[in-house]
Design a protein around this nucleic acid. Sequence first.
DNA 1: ACAAGATATCTTCGTTACCGATATATTGTC
DNA 2: GACAATATATCGGTAACGAAGATATCTTGT
Lengths: 106, 106
Amino acid sequence: MREPTFLILTALAREPMHGYGLIKDVAQLSGGLVELRPGTLYGALDRLTDEGLVTPDRQEIVDGRARRYYRITDAGAGALRDETERRRVGVEAAAQRLAARELGFA
Amino acid sequence: MREPTFLILTALAREPMHGYGLIKDVAQLSGGLVELRPGTLYGALDRLTDEGLVTPDRQEIVDGRARRYYRITDAGAGALRDETERRRVGVEAAAQRLAARELGFA
DNA sequence: ACAAGATATCTTCGTTACCGATATATTGTC
DNA sequence: GACAATATATCGGTAACGAAGATATCTTGT
């Protein structure tokens, strides 16, 4: 699982969201580092839906514009949990080695 | 940067290593979750060398088998630092939302 | 009235890092 | 004699991503 997909699942872990809302939320929770492109977003949403990690929720019309909401599934939350743990392990290993390196143990 | 590349840089942050040593070290520091394939490893090493994040170190002959060592560069350590911080932010966001979700704020 | 920007979805196409498979050769173990 | 471990390398396929653009409505500023 790559970063955009990881962040989409992370955004949906809080509450169901629609595509454009996801673009904004992902930008925010990544500290502005990840700006989802439509091709990335809708491709990922279709893929995650096929995999059962995400499912279409409701549809709303707000100010004449359609909003299609997506919701994370239990399987999606489980996958996110696994991926988060995986990444946490890598981050800790890297942080430790970088710190040691700076202290001169390189 | 994807996970295999991230873990290769992480492994090299501690000390110069040769290809096969990297496969073993990455398997260990990822908790056995990532088993680098030769195609992935040598492809990544070539790519990272082109990008200046890694550089060939020395070559040894041990028991008749050649060992080609690679060393992380200062640019590579910098890239690893950036990527680690990036991942740390994502992991914290995901952990927070997953925890909230488990408490029923979903 | 008009332009520009924000909101909102969707498609097509190219790139690339990665994985699977395979090849080669030596050493050590059962 | 067969198999696992050590060690490097190449080739082909693909899935996820990014770039770019199409479409349409609403809001804000001039």
